[in-house]
Design a protein around this nucleic acid. Sequence first.
DNA 1: TCAAATTAAAGAAAAAATTCTTTAATAACT
DNA 2: AGTTATTAAAGAATTTTTTCTTTAATTTGA
Lengths: 217, 217
Amino acid sequence: MNESRKYKTKKQVSEPTLKRLPGYLYFLEQQKEEGVLNISAPTIGKKLSCDPTQVVKDLSVTGIKGKPRVGYNTYELIHALEEFLGFNRINEAFLVGAGNLGSALMAYQEHQELGLKIIAAFDTDEVKIGKSVGGIHILDYNKLFTLSGRLNVKIGILTTPNNVAQDVAEDMVNCGVRAIWNFTSANLDLPEDVIVQTTSMSSYAAVLLRRLNDSDK
Amino acid sequence: MNESRKYKTKKQVSEPTLKRLPGYLYFLEQQKEEGVLNISAPTIGKKLSCDPTQVVKDLSVTGIKGKPRVGYNTYELIHALEEFLGFNRINEAFLVGAGNLGSALMAYQEHQELGLKIIAAFDTDEVKIGKSVGGIHILDYNKLFTLSGRLNVKIGILTTPNNVAQDVAEDMVNCGVRAIWNFTSANLDLPEDVIVQTTSMSSYAAVLLRRLNDSDK
DNA sequence: TCAAATTAAAGAAAAAATTCTTTAATAACT
DNA sequence: AGTTATTAAAGAATTTTTTCTTTAATTTGA
């Protein structure tokens, strides 16, 4: 499948595991605030209502070892998780499409905790161009190519209307973007080695609405 | 596990399948626009780069049958998917926390395609109370209880700061909410029968950043 | 110092999801 | 009308993920 995988030395961590890691991190940071120095997998599992052995397996990807009868060192584990996830680095990103969702992501403070820094936003709407949201300037989309040459940005956040998503995604790739966080409903057709992470609101809505419907008989 | 399941007659559709369904729906609507009356699973699979037999399995949940050598009737399938997902009904929701993300969701047009209608937003910030975003009024959080008595709203959208998420979620449940779309990082501890769908930005960021890191050596 | 209890780690088993294979149907072409 | 190619459907096999079980380590308390 993914051709880029075959040169990997260590096995890729599974997506379910990766998605759970920020949850552990958030909880551990809470615990650290409360002065908890050590924490065991069963304690984490109980609080997050998941299987303790799964907690152990998930956390093992960081390389941190826990001590029997003591658990993990909170600080050490937090640090290792941040390191593993790349949250303690600065990961620069472009955002294209400064509409409602795009603006919200620009203003969203918590991205900084993820080490994600949107350094510029682009749009074609002249009303938006020149303005700033959350301290991030909205630039003319035409400047994407000239700007990207200097900046070496690897991450693109795609919050355009669906009908232009494919074109913009291709432009991003041509500008050196290697990973796209796709908030549109478009099914992006891009080179194999481009990482596409789609966050589809409608997928979540689908699960929610269906489960709700299931539940009332 | 989920006690509410044991009274189910037909088996619950798996979450991976549910999450894929809106993708099919979006694609089918595009095809319909272009005048495509029938479409085969292999065609869908090719375009959405997924396994054709998986397409067949996924679509079978709607009860629609395809014809050999012809495929599915586009219109019929769209209708069945909308019906199955509840996108053609009006699903009323409360939103609590009219910050950046909350406001974006209020203004987000595409929710209407999901049949999701935010009928009121609540916040404790007096600066926000009384204003409107996307035609939705922001009300005093204290009015949640009095208002919910009349309205019988089943869905709650949670976009508060993390530290109040648990309390607000409990309030929602006490107001009759049966399903919560959780955008916070909090690990909500709620009664078994409450449906919680967490859309964690950090989970997506984790996968994206890690895969990007994996890919460069 | 020596049990006892708790825990992480590693591997086995189970469950879930995806992919593969076979079969039967049917529309298009000869 | 008969043949061929394409397709959906159903079930088998594979893969992935989660849960269970066992083992070994180690701190605590007697």
